[in-house]
Amino acid sequence: MKTLPEGLWPVMLTPFTATNEVDLPGLERLTAMYLEAGSSGLFANCLSSEMYQLTEAERLLITRTVVNVCGEAAPVVATGTFSRDTSANVAFIKRLYDTGVQAVILITGMLVEPDESEEILKERLEQILEQTDGIPLGVYECPMPYKRLLSPALMKWMAATGRFVYHKDTSCNSPAMVRKAEAVKGSRFGLYNADTTTALDSLEAGFRGISPISANFYPEPYSFLLREYRTHGRTESLNRLHALLTMMDRVTHNFYPYAAKVFLQRRGLKIETNTRIPAEALPNADQLRLSALMESFRAVADLYSIPLIL
Rank of each mutant, 00 (worst) to 15 (best):
Y97A: 10
T99Q: 08
T99V: 09
T99M: 07
V101M: 07
Q102H: 14
Q102G: 14
A103M: 05
A103I: 06
I105Q: 01
I107W: 01
T108M: 03
G109H: 09
M110C: 13
L111M: 12
V112H: 07
V112K: 00
E113L: 14
P114H: 03
E116A: 15
S117N: 10
S117V: 11
S117A: 13
S117E: 10
S117L: 12
E118L: 14
E118H: 15
E119P: 00
E119F: 07
K122V: 06
E123H: 12
E126C: 11
Q127L: 14
I128W: 02
L129F: 07
L129N: 07
E130F: 12
D133R: 12
G134Y: 10
G134P: 08
I135E: 01
P136A: 08
L137N: 06
G138T: 03
V139L: 14
C142Q: 05
P143C: 09
P143S: 04
M144K: 10
M144T: 15
P145C: 00
K147S: 12
R148P: 02
L149Q: 12
L149W: 04
L149S: 11
L150P: 01
S151Y: 08
S151A: 12
L154D: 12
M155Y: 03
M155S: 12
M155Q: 13
K156F: 04
W157S: 04
A159T: 07
A159W: 02
A159M: 09
A160K: 14
R163C: 06
R163E: 08
Y166C: 08
Y166R: 05
Y166H: 13
H167T: 11
H167A: 10
T170R: 05
S171N: 09
S171D: 12
C172M: 13
S174F: 09
S174D: 09
A176P: 00
V178S: 06
R179C: 02
R179V: 00
K180L: 11
K180G: 02
K180P: 00
E182C: 05
A183Y: 03
V184C: 06
V184E: 07
V184M: 12
S187L: 10
S187C: 10
R188E: 11
R188P: 00
F189P: 02
L191H: 03
